[in-house]
Simulated assay, not measured.
Amino acid sequence: MVENKNITTYKESLKEKILSAAMALFAEKGIKAVKMDDIANSLSISKRTIYEICENKEDLLFEGVKKRKSAQQEALREFAEGADNVMDIILHSFRLTIEQFKFTNPVFYSDLMKYPRIMRYFEEDKKKSQKQFREFLHRGIGEGYFREDVNYDLIIYILSAQERYIMMSQLYNMYSMEEIFYNLIFISLRGICTNKGIEVLDGFLINIKS
């Protein structure tokens, strides 16, 4: 019984290492450019060992994407527990996203769109994120950061459409994802802020721009 538990613990630990190494290489070089041999070599293990964890590269990518998303959500949840207001939570989420863009090759996003199963996962996850974002926005109204005279369902729809356009048009090949995201925040979020919210947001934008 103890031996089986040890084997399971070892496999889970190995899986975590493989997923982390794979996602780091995907982010650096793009998905297509990374071979299973590259991942194995980066960990000094055999390719066969990787195939014992995931059947193919798409499964490896899918598991890695879910792992990264889960880690981001956990980090945001921990931050939210100690945050003073909803504005801090939203801006912290934006900061984490921007930091991720800085260390990700744009080719990664182009390659990612070639995997329908993963894109469906993102669409499903987006629905959950939009619900949470809507709750944050309404909480922000009560805290005095966001305007009351705004149709927030429409705003969320517009933001989603903008995000979809950025990915489909591969706008990140013309501008950095940081620049795209900065302007998206500046135009979309600032427009729904009260004077109190604008003061906080402008301070945040100055910091990330510098």
Rank of each mutant, 00 (worst) to 15 (best):
I7E: 15
G203H: 09
M113N: 09
Q73P: 03
N6Y: 12
L14E: 06
N6M: 14
L76G: 01
V2S: 15
G197Y: 02
N173V: 08
Y182V: 10
D84A: 14
R77S: 12
Y152I: 07
G197V: 04
I155F: 05
N183C: 07
S188P: 02
F26G: 01
E123A: 11
Y145A: 05
L189T: 09
E199S: 11
V34K: 03
K126H: 08
E148V: 12
D38W: 04
M168Q: 12
L76C: 04
K128E: 08
E123R: 08
H92T: 13
E52P: 01
K57I: 06
Y172W: 02
E63R: 10
L159D: 01
D202P: 07
L171M: 15
I155V: 15
S210A: 11
Y109Q: 03
F103E: 14
M87W: 03
I53S: 12
K29L: 05
S129A: 14
E12A: 10
D125L: 03
I155N: 01
E3Y: 13
I118S: 02
K15V: 05
D37T: 13
F108C: 07
E148F: 06
K196E: 09
K69E: 04
T104F: 03
S188H: 08
N85E: 07
A83D: 04
M87D: 04
N195H: 11
D59F: 03
I98C: 03
K66H: 01
T97L: 10
D88T: 09
M168L: 11
F62P: 00
D149F: 08
Q72G: 06
D153L: 10
L159M: 13
I166E: 00
A33M: 07
L60V: 06
S110P: 00
K57T: 08
M168F: 02
S210V: 14
A27T: 07
G82I: 09
T49N: 12
M23C: 03
I7W: 11
K29C: 03
D202F: 06
L76K: 00
F136C: 08
T49A: 13
M119D: 00
A40W: 02
Y115V: 09
I90Q: 00
K209V: 07
I206T: 15
Y152W: 06
F103Y: 11
D125V: 04
N105D: 03
R68V: 10
R190H: 08
I185Q: 02
K196N: 06
A75L: 12
L96Y: 00
D84F: 08
A71I: 14
V34P: 01
T97G: 05
N195G: 12
T104H: 04
S13Q: 15
E58M: 07
A80C: 05
G191V: 12
Y121L: 11
A75R: 08
A71G: 05
A80F: 00
F146T: 08
K5T: 14
N207H: 13
R139S: 05
V34G: 01
I45Q: 07
R68T: 12
N151S: 11
I187F: 09
S44K: 15
Y121M: 10
M177V: 04
F204Q: 03
K15R: 15
V107R: 15
L91H: 02
Y182T: 11
F181N: 02
M23D: 00
K114Q: 15
K114C: 07
F94D: 07
I90H: 00
A22T: 04
N183S: 08
I89W: 00
S169N: 14
C54Y: 02
I166F: 01
Q100L: 12
M36V: 10
K102R: 15
K126Q: 13
V34H: 01
K17H: 09
E12K: 15
Y115S: 06
